[in-house]
Design a protein around this nucleic acid. Structure first.
Lengths: 211, 211
DNA sequence: CTAAGTGATGACACTTGGTGCCATAAGCCT
DNA sequence: AGGCTTATGGCACCAAGTGTCATCACTTAG
């Protein structure tokens, strides 16, 4: 930190043009999507609000939706690293749970922004589509991390997908009544209930009313 | 079948224009997406191949992707009905499993078409996005059906989402090595392994290496 | 100090997905 | 015959992206 200390030094770490084109575009998009809704907002609107042009927007973000997801790309690394460094004694689903807890803490810190973004995403089917494929990508990464721990292919995919499912449900609840329970608690509860649902089952009917 | 028997009868069940505009568009889209890829195919290409125009395409399908999913919309009803009519003695996840078996049977019948469509969808990120939101919608419907059976909100969502996860993984395997195992077998195996993964876990560590 | 890079931006034309609106042609119904 | 309905075509139009070139600020070599 304390980057702005160097003012006339030899290191031009900071900017040339207006410094934060990308950040300005993100903020403008968030505001406009929030106010008018996603599809009532034009890329030109966003660019104009950020003092830039449509063409520049597409140099920073692949498409109109990605502007909402670009900043959160590091979440995946967070979870994957937590899974990778989890104690070897943990089973796959527990290792994933540990990773989810790391994400929950980040939610707790930046709750305001994360929740606002999530609400916007949930309000638009197009954005929700994008969110789902992000979740899927995260599940794949988590599964890779589990395989690297020696977990079998099948168990890795299932534990990863189940964990992401729990994350999705917990996020939903967190948004619906904010402040009630902490992200950690919510994820813990959902994971426990997942185990209960999976356990409560008859292990294959032996005979089915044969005469 | 045998619709063409009536030629000059009084019942014009069949067409006025060229009969199967919609079906022709679907077939053309499938062929072109398969041959050139989704994004190398223009809506005008599809329409032209079907002997129609771009405008007509968008009267039948909401967008360029939906043409691949419109025909399979009834799959959701299939699963939901199976869940609804499942024996009351079954737990939520077992009821969902029953619904998935109904879908598996349909896969078995129309295996060729389903598999081809699925491969095309997997080949394009945009189409895969759409597929994921379809899965999510199906999970929501299944959850509603479970709640109607008296299952709690939480258990319903979790069982539904877990079931759909199993379906996705089973579909993947079915596509990867076709003919190896039947859809029913695959889904059954994945569900069993899901239960195993969820069960294999320590119910909270009592003490963690306290000195 | 000038000249040649370099990197972010602007300007503009162009393709494509998608929509609104009206016209047309075919059949159906009194 | 005239009117209603229905599927389609034609056309104009907007918005999302992309390719290409120009520009402008700043850096670095000479």
């Amino acid at each position: 930190m304390s980057l702005s200390v160097i003012t006339s030094g030899k290191l031009p770490i900071v900017p040339r043009w207006e410094p934060d084109a990308r950040a300005r575009l993100e903020a403008a998009a968030l505001d406009l999507y929030d106010a008018r809704g996603f599809d009532q907002t034009t890329v030109e609107d966003i660019a104009e609000r950020a003092g830039l042009t449509k063409r520049t927007f597409f140099r920073h973000f692949a498409d109109k939706r990605e502007v909402l997801f670009a900043s959160g790309g590091n979440l995946e690394d967070l979870v994957v690293n937590a899974v990778r460094t989890a104690p070897k004694s943990l089973g796959p689903l527990d290792a994933v749970g540990l990773g989810l807890m790391a994400m929950a803490d980040r939610f707790d810190e930046q709750g305001e922004i994360v929740a606002r973004r999530f609400r916007i995403v949930r309000a638009s089917p197009e954005l929700w589509e994008r969110q789902l494929i992000k979740f899927a990508a995260m599940a794949e990464s988590v599964a890779r991390a589990l395989r690297a721990r020696g977990v079998s292919e099948t168990a890795a995919i299932l534990a990863a997908e189940s964990g992401i499912t729990a994350l999705r449900i917990a996020s939903d609840r967190w948004i619906r009544n904010p402040g009630k329970r902490s992200p950690r608690q919510l994820i813990g509860e959902v994971l426990a209930e997942l185990r209960a649902v999976a356990a409560r089952a008859r292990p294959a009917r032996v005979n089915r009313t044969v005469p």
